[in-house]
Computed example of a mutant assay.
Amino acid sequence: MERHPAIRSRFRALSQGAGEVASPQLRNQGTIGGNICQKPRCWYYRGEFHCLRKGGERCYAVGGENQYHCIFGGENCFIVHPSDTAPPLVALEAVVRIVGPQGTRSVPVSRFHVPPSEDFRQETVLAPDEMVTEIILPPAPSGLRSSYRKVRARRAWDFSLAGMALAITFKDNTVQKARVVFSGVAPVPWRSKEVEVAITGRRLDKETVARAADAAVREAEPMEKNGYKISLLRGVVEEELLAAQSGESPG
C-alpha cells in the first residue's frame, strides 16, 4: 500500500500513513483492517492492571506514568489510539464494509472507533461476530492535497506522540474544503474542526497557519507528564499546513 502507484498519486496521506506502520516485516504480515482495529495504547490497559476499561474502578494513568497518554477526549479513560492509517482514512472520508451473521453494513471510518465519552469499554462499532472486509475510498476530488506526518521518540519503529492527517482541496491556492485529523493525542482519530474552520476559505499564509496552530491546541487538556505534546502538535500543524500550500510535505 505504501508503494502502490495509484494510492501514492491519489491518496498520498494513506500511502504515508501506511509507510509509518511498525516495520517493513510487520507491514508485510499485517492488514490495514488489523491496523485500524488494534488495541489502544496504554501500558496499564495492555498490562496486568485491572483498570476502568477492564471493569475496574480507576484509570491508572491519572496520577501515574501518563507521558504517552491523550490530551483530547480522555473522559476518565486516557488511552491513545495507535493507528497510523486510521487518521488518513478519516481525513479522506473512507468507509469500512463490515460483515457478520446479520449481513453487511457500511460505516464511515470517522464513526468506526468509539470514544470513552460514549463507552469506555468499547473500542470500535464491531460486534463480537463481525469483521472488516473492505475499506472504500471515494474518488479523489480535483485539487486534493493530502499528507500524513507523525512525530515519534525515535526514527526507528515507534508509536506516534503527535501527528496529523490532512486532506485539503484547493482552488486558486485557496482552501475550499479541509479535513484535519490528529494521531497520537486522543483515544480515537481526532478530527480538529477548529483547524478546519481556521483555514477554510483562506490561503495558507503564515498568519493563517499561526491561527490554525493556536486553534489546534486550544481545547487540549494535558495530564501531569504529557504537556510536551501541545508544542509537538503545534509544530506538526504549522509545518504540514505550510507544506500543503506549496504542494510539498516533509512527512
Rank of each mutant, 00 (worst) to 15 (best):
C51K: 14
L52D: 03
A210V: 03
P82G: 05
E20G: 01
R41W: 14
G100N: 11
E75M: 08
A86G: 07
R12M: 09
F11L: 09
R234P: 01
S231P: 00
A215H: 05
G100E: 11
Q176D: 10
V125W: 09
R111M: 11
L89I: 08
K229N: 02
K150N: 08
P82V: 09
A198S: 08
Q67M: 03
A94C: 05
I135F: 08
A18R: 00
R105W: 15
G55W: 15
R202W: 10
E20H: 13
S110G: 06
A86F: 04
P128L: 04
V185F: 13
I7G: 02
A22I: 12
V151F: 12
L241R: 03
S246P: 04
T174I: 15
L126D: 06
G19A: 06
P139K: 15
Q122I: 02
A243T: 04
H4D: 13
F182V: 03
G55Q: 15
P187S: 11
A162H: 05
F11P: 00
F11A: 00
S9L: 10
F170L: 09
K206T: 15
E240T: 14
K171G: 10
K177C: 04
V96T: 10
R58K: 15
S117P: 01
A140H: 12
S246N: 09
R10E: 07
S83P: 06
V175L: 06
A244Y: 07
L26Q: 07
V181L: 05
Y60L: 13
K171T: 13
S246T: 14
V185M: 07
I168D: 00
R58V: 14
A186C: 06
F72M: 03
A165I: 11
W190I: 02
I32Y: 00
P141Q: 07
K206H: 13
F112S: 06
T200D: 06
K229Q: 04
R12F: 14
T208V: 15
V80F: 02
K54M: 14
K225S: 03
L126G: 02
N226P: 01
E248A: 13
P187Q: 11
D172C: 10
L89F: 12
E123C: 03
Q176H: 11
L92K: 12
Q67G: 00
P187L: 08
Y45L: 15
D214N: 08
V217Y: 02
V125P: 03
A167D: 03
E219T: 01
A6M: 13
I230W: 13
V80T: 06
I71L: 04
Y68W: 09
G33W: 11
L126V: 02
P5W: 08
Y44D: 06
F159A: 07
K193D: 05
A167F: 07
L166Q: 07
T174M: 12
C59F: 14
R203W: 08
G184R: 01
F78Y: 15
F182W: 08
A243M: 03
Q29D: 01
V151T: 12
D172Q: 15
I36N: 00
Q67A: 05
E123A: 08
K171V: 09
L241T: 12
V175F: 13
S192Q: 07
N226A: 05
E57F: 10
H4S: 01
V107S: 09
K206E: 14
R97F: 10
A244D: 08
H69N: 11
F182T: 04
A165P: 04
E194G: 07
S15C: 05
L14Q: 00
M223L: 15
A156M: 11
N226C: 02
L233T: 02
F159H: 05
V132N: 01
P138T: 10
